[in-house]
Every structure is written in structure tokens, then in C-alpha cells.
């Protein structure tokens, strides 16, 4: 059952990324380019996505366990540390370089676009690199 609900969630997520045009790096860079012809679309996407989630957190707290899994896997860390800041900064630089973050990269990989294939392979390499790095605690 959790396979089916996971599949539905991933599918809806991908359709949302496509309709909102977040799969187009040019649109994302248009948002990040505050000194150019600024494109606010990403702001509407973030706002639209946060609304259902914001409401959901109230109701989720009332559940003992998720409907199709045995327990919740919600991050409990509170501390602001160097890893959080450094990681986010590096991610930001990479995101700003190309205009693609992990979600859209996977949603659009099926187009077979060579640039996307290079990006995703490199992104996975970056994740594997982290796995073997001393930063993984």
C-alpha cells in the first residue's frame, strides 16, 4: 500500500513541477536574477506549495503513525550548525549556476536532454562523494 501512495505522491509532485514550469531552468534563473528582468513565478510556486503543508502539520500531529507506514520520519534536529550553513551555501551556488535543484532535475530527466543527464549524473556523484567524505557524521 505504501508503494501505491508513494507513487501517487511522486506523480503529483512531478505534475506540479511541470505545470508550474519549475522544470525550466530559465524560469528559475529568472527568479534568482534580481538585477535583471525579475520573474516572480517561483514565489507563487513556493507560496502555493506551503499552504497545504502548513495546514497539514496541524493535523499530522494528531496521528500516532502515518496511514501506510509504522512510524513518522520527521527531522528532529534543532541546532544551527556549520554543516547546515555550509551545505546550504554550496547548494545555493550550484543552484544559481544552472537553475536546477534536485526535484526538477529528476522530473525532467526523462526528456533525455544531454545537459540534464550530465547534471543529474554529477549531482548523484556529489551525493556519493558526501557519503564517503569525513563530513558525514
Amino acid at each position: 500500500m505504501r508503494l501505491i501512495t508513494g507513487l501517487i505522491a511522486g506523480s503529483l509532485f512531478g505534475i506540479g513541477l511541470t505545470i508550474s514550469d519549475m522544470v525550466n531552468p530559465k524560469r528559475v534563473l529568472g527568479f534568482l536574477d534580481i538585477a535583471g528582468e525579475w520573474d516572480p513565478t517561483l514565489l507563487f510556486v513556493m507560496g502555493g506549495a506551503m499552504l497545504p503543508m502548513f495546514i497539514s502539520w496541524f493535523f499530522v500531529k494528531k496521528l500516532k503513525h502515518p496511514l501506510c507506514e509504522t512510524d513518522f520520519q520527521i527531522p528532529s534536529k534543532q541546532r544551527i550548525n556549520v554543516k547546515l550553513i555550509m551545505g546550504s551555501a554550496l547548494f545555493g551556488i550550484g543552484w544559481g549556476t544552472i537553475g536546477i535543484c534536485p526535484g526538477p532535475s529528476l522530473a525532467s530527466i526523462g526528456t533525455g536532454n544531454v545537459s540534464l543527464l550530465i547534471f543529474v549524473s554529477s549531482m548523484i556523484a556529489g551525493m556519493l562523494l558526501f557519503k564517503v567524505s569525513p563530513f558525514k557524521a
Binding site: T5, S20, I55
Partner: peptide, 17 residues
Amino acid sequence: GGLLIGCASAFYLFFNG
């Protein structure tokens, strides 16, 4: 599209935790 992404995330949270 954003609302869909949010609904997908909410769905994943409720069902898959």
C-alpha cells in the same frame, strides 16, 4: 503547480510519514 506540489507533499506525509 505549487498547490499540487504542496498536496503531494501533504499526501506523502499523511500516508508515508
